[in-house]
Computed example of a mutant assay.
Amino acid sequence: MIFTDQQKIGVMLSAMGSFFSILGIFLFLDRGLLAIGNLLFISGIVLILGLHKTSKFFFQVKKIKGTICFFFGILIVIFTKWTFVGLLIEIFGFINLFGDAFPIVISVMRKLPIIGNILNYPPIARLINKTSAGEELPF
C-alpha cells in the first residue's frame, strides 16, 4: 500500500498525538500535554482519512455515543481543570469509537518480537482472547 505525503504526515501527527497523550498521563495528567496530544491525534486522523471519510466515520449512527463522549472529554480536558474526569470520558468514547479495531491491533502486536512474546504468554493470552471474544473479565 502506497501512502500519499498527506497520509504520511497524518500518521506522524497521530503518532505524536499518542506520544503527547501518554506523556501527559505519565506526568500526572498534565492538561497542556493532553490537549496537544488530542489535537494532534485528531488532525492526524483527518489527514490520513480525509475530511469526508473522517466525518463519515465519527458521525455513524452506531458510533454517535462514542463520538459525543470522545469530543466532550477533549473539551473538558482543554477548558476545565477536571482533567481526570475529562480523560475518563474521552477513554470511554475512544473505546466505543475504535473498539472494533482492537482485535486487529492485537493480532499485529502478537507478531512483534518482544511484545508478541508477552502477549502470547498463556495467562495474558487467555485474558486477551476472552476480551476480544466479548466475554466478561474475571475480575
Rank of each mutant, 00 (worst) to 15 (best):
L75D: 09
G73M: 03
N96C: 03
T83L: 06
I91L: 10
S55D: 03
G134A: 14
K130F: 03
L40E: 07
I9L: 13
L27K: 14
A35M: 12
F94D: 02
F102Q: 01
N96I: 08
L29C: 05
I128R: 06
G66D: 02
L13G: 00
I115M: 05
I78K: 08
K56L: 10
G24S: 15
A15S: 14
S14V: 05
A125S: 14
E90I: 01
L137F: 11
L39G: 13
F71W: 05
G24V: 10
I48V: 11
F102W: 03
I78H: 12
C69N: 05
I25N: 09
N129G: 08
I89K: 06
F72P: 00
R31Y: 08
L13D: 06
T80Q: 11
I36D: 05
I95S: 01
I115Y: 11
V11N: 08
K81V: 04
G93E: 00
G86F: 02
V61N: 08
G99Q: 06
G50S: 04
T80A: 08
L112F: 02
K63P: 02
L47F: 07
G66W: 03
I22K: 09
F57W: 01
M12D: 05
L29E: 08
V61F: 06
I104H: 02
F28G: 04
F98L: 09
I114N: 14
D30F: 10
K65F: 08
G37L: 11
M109P: 00
L119T: 07
M16N: 12
Q60P: 01
P113T: 12
V105M: 10
L47V: 00
G99P: 00
A125C: 12
F26D: 08
N120R: 15
G93A: 02
G116Q: 09
F70E: 01
F79D: 13
L39I: 15
S55P: 00
I115V: 10
G99C: 11
Y121P: 02
G50E: 01
V61A: 10
L75V: 13
I95P: 00
